[in-house]
Design a protein around this nucleic acid. Sequence first.
RNA 1: AGUUGCAAGUGCUCUAUCGCUUCGGGAAACCGGGGAGGAAAGUCCGGACAACAUAGAGCACCGCACCACCUAACGGGUGGGGAGGACACACAACGUUCUUACAGAUAGUGCCGCAGAAAAUAACCGCCUCGGCUUAGCCGUGGCAAGGGUGAAAACGUGCGGUAAGAGCGCACGCAUCGUUGUAGCAAUGCAGCGGUGGGGUAAACCUUGCGGGUUGAAAGCCAACGUACAUCAGCGCUUGAGGGCUGCUCGCCCGAUUGUUCGUUGAGGGGUGUGGCGUUUCAGGUACUGCGUGAGCAGUAUCGCAGAUAAAUGAUAGGGGUUCGCCUUGGCGAAAACAGAAUCCGGCUUAUAGCUUGCAACAUUUU
RNA 2: GGUUCCGUAGUACAACGGAUAGUAUGAGGGUUUCCGGAGCCCUAGAUUCAGGUUCGAUUCCUGACGGGACCA
Length: 168
Amino acid sequence: MEEKFWQEEEAEAAKNSPFLTRNASSNIAISQFSVAELAALKDKSAFGSSEKLKSRKLIDQLFNEGKSVSRNGFTLVYLFVPLATQFPIQAAFSVPKRNYKHATDRNRIKRLMREVWRKNKWPLYELLTQQQKQLAIMWVCKSKELPDYSIAEKTILHLLEKLKSKLA
RNA sequence: AGUUGCAAGUGCUCUAUCGCUUCGGGAAACCGGGGAGGAAAGUCCGGACAACAUAGAGCACCGCACCACCUAACGGGUGGGGAGGACACACAACGUUCUUACAGAUAGUGCCGCAGAAAAUAACCGCCUCGGCUUAGCCGUGGCAAGGGUGAAAACGUGCGGUAAGAGCGCACGCAUCGUUGUAGCAAUGCAGCGGUGGGGUAAACCUUGCGGGUUGAAAGCCAACGUACAUCAGCGCUUGAGGGCUGCUCGCCCGAUUGUUCGUUGAGGGGUGUGGCGUUUCAGGUACUGCGUGAGCAGUAUCGCAGAUAAAUGAUAGGGGUUCGCCUUGGCGAAAACAGAAUCCGGCUUAUAGCUUGCAACAUUUU
RNA sequence: GGUUCCGUAGUACAACGGAUAGUAUGAGGGUUUCCGGAGCCCUAGAUUCAGGUUCGAUUCCUGACGGGACCA
């Protein structure tokens, strides 16, 4: 009884751990979505945990090796790297403490960026799925003043266009 | 009724759509619950919890300091006492209200600029005695500490006696302080009597006395599985030959599991790094009622389950309803809504806080 | 999340609890020079804030505010 429980746990762990899957990729393989599979999900603009960039190691790698585009105090850092997910992109958001002293302001900006990303990520998803590439990205807000939603949306859309043109 | 300040309380709300996180159900799709604060903040105290350390005692270091109580504990709170300020009043007492790090300066040491004679066993001017010169006074000797002046602070206050002049030198009344007796009180302490003292201040200077304190903090700590490289040990195989012996040295020969090196392989096994889980949210828990207590609180009964993320959830859009402000005007339109975001958990303290409510104080106007 | 240190002119540093807070450099003005530099003379400028102890705080104590360092 107990043994069975442990086996299940192992399987669970294997599914969740990105490290494992990468090493044993030839066998278990979480392959990327095909274009058709992705299209089935399109009518929902969800942003689940498997679309979030969480691994400390990957983030360090991203900042060290990644390229970036920036405008208006927003910076987008990106890097092509194999991910342990079916989605083409894992994203994360960051606001440095230097410009915003209060945790409230930092939370506000992160939520704002996440909302804009959630609504505008689909064009990039489709492009990458066609190319069958995976991308890790990090949004950083370095501006001095607290941005409102419309400004953030404008700049982020602009950055996305820039990124698309580089990928194409 | 208004404005300002202080204190306490409160800290906008509902619906829909698209999302996030967690729990439950489900094979899945999905469905249904829960989802920031009074300060979540500062990290200033006190605990719980964990790891390590620990015979006992003392010293050092740090903290606290009127008394009693509350509390798991506290540097927190409650009540009481003393001291000080404000109001009122001719003044005091009583009263109201606010503040209070409030043990010891007679255990010792240090410090007290400038001014002043002197800043701690004081003598400049001054007062007085005696002697000399001389009769205004001056000089010397001794006594005194009333008056003057300096300063933040100058050796109890007033009156009478006393004296050459004076002085708690003596007496009366008063003040402060210490001891003691009585009395009220658990006590701090108050009141009354008797006796002693009247030699400044500073302990948020060193210090003394009493009491308390082991150290480090969830990045504490515990567990799991896997990959990678590695310290170590053991077995087997292969290779190498440090060292020792024979010798003056070299070559050569012998020993070589006692120690050590390299490679392969098998097993044991420790720490490091990345990952996941536990710790991790059920409590010194909230709410209501009853009883006890001046009160902080305590006890009993009933009832509720009320965040749990980990590059880190609690959001966005649209519409409505309250509140405040502005404009037109009695119904619309437009705008605004503070301080601020859980990170192991509790009890306090401190700080920030729009608008509204309540209380107190001050100010000005109106009415009587 | 925790631990710890520090706040003095624009800047870098001084100052037993005691007069009007000092030094260097920078700033402004003057002098010298044909002009500039160097030199010389002069001037302004500060104890992070709020309480408390003391006769008297940059210094001592308490609280706030701000800044830095360390712990994986």
